[in-house]
Design a protein around this nucleic acid. Structure first.
Lengths: 339, 339
DNA sequence: TTGTAAGCGTTATCAC
DNA sequence: GTGATAACGCTTACAA
C-alpha cells in the first residue's frame, strides 16, 4: 500500500497542528468556520482519505459487523444479508460476511476471526448442527453483542429474530385443508432445530382447529439433503393412505419433493398439492409449483436483527444483558398462479 | 468493545518485554524455545487474541480484499464469491463484500469505502452500465491492484478473468445445429457489454462453420430485465421464419424466455430448443429446461481472480503494471436430462 | 537471546 | 479557537 495523505501532511501545509486538522475534519464546533473551510478544501485537493484502520485502532471500535450464515447460495440468506447491510450502511457500518457451510468447526473458526478483527457486533444464523453456543456466549462476555436469525439457538439466552414459524405452519396447513385436502403430510425440518418444531406445531394446530385427526406417520423429518427428501417421499407414498397435500419445511424441500415425483411418480404430480415455507424468486419459473408459499421476509429479518444489534451496541457495557429480545416477524401466505 | 488482553499484559506477567512476547507469538527464530512456550501458554490461558486493527494499522496492510459484485442473489456471483473467499482464506486474508446493485453511483461509493478501509486489493465485476473506469484506475494509482471478473472493463488496462465466451457461444450454437436446428436465434446480452459481443461472435462463428446463413433479425439484445426478454421473444416469434432454437446470453434470460412461452405461446414450448450460458442449480428443478447449458465455472473464476490479485499484491510497488493478464477459463457444455 | 524505543494515523485531554 | 502531547496495540530496527 502506498502511503496516502495524512492529516499530518495537511497540518504541515496549512501551518496548523494535527489536532486542529482532525477536529476540523470531524466538524468539532470549537473550530472556526474559516479554518474548517481551509482544512476541508485542502483535504479535498490532496485527495485525503482517512485511514480507517488507524481510527479503528484508536477508537477501539471497528464500525464493523460480523455476519455468519450457513450458505450464501441459499437465497433466503442472500436476502437476509441485504437486510443487514441496508441497516448497517445507513449507520456507517460495514459488514464482514462469512459462511459456515453448515459446519460447526468452521463456524467456531469464523467466530475467532471476528474476535481478532474486533467486530463491534455479530449476527449469526447457526448451522443446523450447532448445539454448543459457548463460542457465542464468549462473544457476549467480551462485550460483543450477538443476535441470532432464522434458526433459534439452543438454550435461548440470545437475541433472536425469525419468522413467526408457528403461524406460518398453521397458515400453510390451513390453506391445504381449505382446498379440500384431508390427508396432509409434513416434511419437517431436522429434529434438532427449534424452527422445525415451531412449524410442526403450527401444522398440528391447524389440523386440530379443523377437526382433522393427526397421523404421526404423515410427518417425516428430513435432513435438508436431497436424498433425505427422496427417502421421506418414498415412505409417504407407500402408506396405505398416502397424503394428497404436503406442507414442507422449506423451499428446497418442495423443489426436491417435486423432483422426486417428476422422476419417480409422474402420475401423482398433479394430484398432490404443496405448500411450504419460502417464496424464492425461482419458484416463479417452475411449471409445477406449490399451491402457495409462506413468504418469510428474510430481508426484514436481517434488518430487524441489525437494528437490535445496534441497540445492544449502544447500551453501555453492563455485563451481559438480562433480557433477550425474541422477535417473530409475521409471514405472508402467497398463493401462486397456476396456468 | 471491552479491552481485551494485550501483549503488554502478557509481558508484565512474565516479566519480559513486549517485543519478546511479540516475537514469540510470531515464531521469530531468535526467541528461545522455552520463552516461546511460556508466552504461548500464558497467551492461551489468558485468552489473548491479537488485535488485528492494531496490526493492520502498524503494518499498513489490512489483509483484506474488497469484492464488488452487482448482486448476491445471482448465483453466478454467489459461486464467484465463494471462489474468491476460498483462496483468500487460504492465505489468511478476508474479504469484504459489497453489492453495486448494478448502480454506477453506488459502485463508486463502494470504491471510496474500500479506499478508506485500505483494502489490499480489489476484485470487481462492474455494473452493466459502468463505462468510466476512472475510479478503478485511481485504485491502481494508489497501489491497490484491481482484478475484474465476468464483465470486461471498458478500455482494457485491467487484469481480467472470465469464461471463454467465444468458445461457449460457439459450443451452444453448434449444439443446436447438431440437433438439427437451422433457424437459431440469439438473445444476446446488453450491447454495451463486451461479454455480449464475445458470445455473439461465437454464435456467428458456429453458424458459419456449419454453413448456415446468418440472419440479423434473429439476434436481439436484451437488457437483462424480464420485460426486455419478453419483448425480444415477441419479436422473434413474429418473424416470417421464426427460430426453432434459441441460444441465450444467460440463465435468467432462458428462464424468462421459457416463462414467456409458457404463458403466451404454450404450444411452442416443446418446439423450441434452448441453450444458454449458465448452469445454475435451479435449472435442475425445471420441467422445461434448456437442452444444454454452458457451464461457466464462476467459482474457478473467483479463485483465479484472487490468485492473480495476490500475485499483483506481492509484486513490489512499481507504478502501474505495464501488462495485464486476461484469462479466459474454458466453459463446459452440459447436456440436460429430459424425462 | 532479549530488551529499548520509535513509530504507524488518529483522537482526546488539557493547556494556552 | 488552537496547539502540544499522550495514547491506542503492535512490529521492528537496533542495541545490549
Amino acid at each position: 500500500m502506498k502511503k496516502g495523505v495524512t492529516i499530518k501532511d495537511i497540518a504541515k501545509k496549512l501551518h496548523m497542528s494535527v489536532s486542529t486538522v482532525s477536529k476540523a475534519l470531524n466538524n468539532d464546533p470549537s473550530i472556526s468556520a474559516l479554518t474548517s473551510e481551509r482544512v476541508k478544501a485542502l483535504a479535498q485537493e490532496l485527495n485525503y482519505v482517512p485511514n480507517e484502520a488507524a481510527r479503528h485502532f484508536k477508537l477501539s471500535r471497528t464500525f464493523t459487523l460480523g455476519l455468519i450464515i450457513p450458505d450464501i447460495l441459499d437465497q433466503y440468506y442472500a436476502f437476509a444479508i441485504n437486510g443487514v447491510e441496508a441497516v448497517a450502511e445507513q449507520r456507517g457500518y460495514h459488514v464482514i460476511l462469512s459462511q459456515s457451510h453448515e459446519d460447526v468447526a468452521t463456524e467456531q473458526k469464523i467466530v475467532d476471526v471476528m474476535v481478532r478483527h474486533r467486530v463491534d457486533g455479530v449476527i449469526v444464523s447457526v448451522t443446523k448442527n450447532t448445539v454448543d453456543m459457548q463460542p457465542f456466549r464468549k462473544l457476549l462476555q467480551m462485550g460483543i453483542p450477538v443476535v441470532c436469525i432464522g434458526r433459534e439457538p439452543k438454550g435461548g439466552m440470545f437475541d433472536f429474530v425469525t419468522s413467526d414459524n408457528h403461524e406460518g405452519g398453521f397458515a400453510a396447513t390451513d390453506f391445504l385443508i381449505k382446498k379440500g385436502h384431508r390427508h396432509i403430510a409434513h416434511l419437517m425440518g431436522p429434529e434438532g432445530m427449534r424452527t422445525s418444531h415451531a412449524r410442526y406445531e403450527g401444522y398440528k394446530a391447524a389440523l386440530e382447529a379443523n377437526g382433522i385427526p393427526f397421523r404421526e406417520e404423515l410427518v417425516k423429518a428430513v435432513d435438508l439433503t436431497p436424498e433425505g427428501t427422496y427417502r421421506a417421499m418414498e415412505e409417504l407414498l407407500q402408506l396405505a393412505e398416502p397424503p394428497t397435500g404436503i406442507f414442507t419445511f422449506k423451499n428446497y424441500i418442495t423443489l426436491e419433493a417435486l423432483h422426486y415425483l417428476k422422476t419417480q411418480r409422474p402420475e401423482l404430480l398433479e394430484k398432490i398439492g404443496f405448500t411450504g415455507f419460502g417464496n424464492l424468486p425461482i419458484l416463479h419459473y417452475l411449471d409445477h409449483k406449490p399451491l402457495a408459499s409462506i413468504e418469510e421476509s428474510s430481508f426484514e429479518i436481517g434488518e430487524e436483527a441489525a437494528r437490535i444489534l445496534f441497540e445492544r451496541m449502544s447500551e453501555k457495557d453492563e455485563e451481559e444483558p438480562t433480557q433477550y429480545h425474541s422477535r417473530q416477524l409475521p409471514c405472508r401466505l402467497v398463493v401462486h398462479d397456476h396456468l
